[in-house]
Amino acid sequence: MPAPSLLPLAVALLLSHRQAGLACLEPPSPSPGATGVPTNALLYDFNATGLQSESGGTVPLLQAGAPWDDDARYRSPSSPLQPGTTYLLPFAPGGGPTTGSFTTGAGPDTLAPSAPALLGAVPGDGMNPVYGCISDRLELFPLEPSTDDQTPASEIRYELSVALPDGGFERTYEELVPVGLPDGGLLLAVPMGLSGLSGSYVAQARDWAGNLSPPSAPVRVAVGPTCDFAESTAGSGPPSLLALWLLGLGFLARRRRSVQNGRPKR
């Protein structure tokens, strides 16, 4: 893993080899074509109401339970999937709806991944090209990844949360996929920055079944991205102090939505 001061250069090298135009969308999970998926799989971003098995049967999908019940993209099968079975499902990878499949393994997965480690936090410079998004600043978190007994490293997803004073977490990003560096290191690249909000951030990993790892040690982000204010071709208004003030108050509100036991809660 390169030292934090070298990360911008490393990312620049990385980006020089990436194609432009990546969508600001998290890829579906499990990835289309995945094999060995637990029979208690958590599905993300499929926007589907049912899975069709290769034998023709349909398994209805439901809104996933806590802690995934605050996002309609998380779905759970209404009954356990059959081992060693291929399921067809629609998914929307960003280029429009299509159909993919995954194949289950021998049974359910109840073991959580190991805790990841955040090795620092590095403000990016300028707009965020990693995800092809328009963003004022990119925030980078060097990562020591988690491992899991059934989910391949490439399929593990990461959550980034603010660590609250009472020990709870408030999730700010979900389904992050690490970005690989030329030297083999990994980064969590936050698609839209941290909205200029300082705080202590932790990462957690989840596996295919939605088992959530213990949190990483918190990393302090002292200065988040700066904000530029309203733009238009007709001229920009001056920075709105009220807007800045409310943005900060909104952050306080998040802190007040305290959580316990390490998972976000409404």
Binding site: Y173, E174, S240, A243, L246, R257, R266
Partner: peptide, 11 residues
């Protein structure tokens, strides 16, 4: 100018 700037949902 634009204001306020809010995120009604926590994420």
């Amino acid at each position: 100018t634009f204001d306020p700037i809010l995120q009604p949902f926590p994420e």
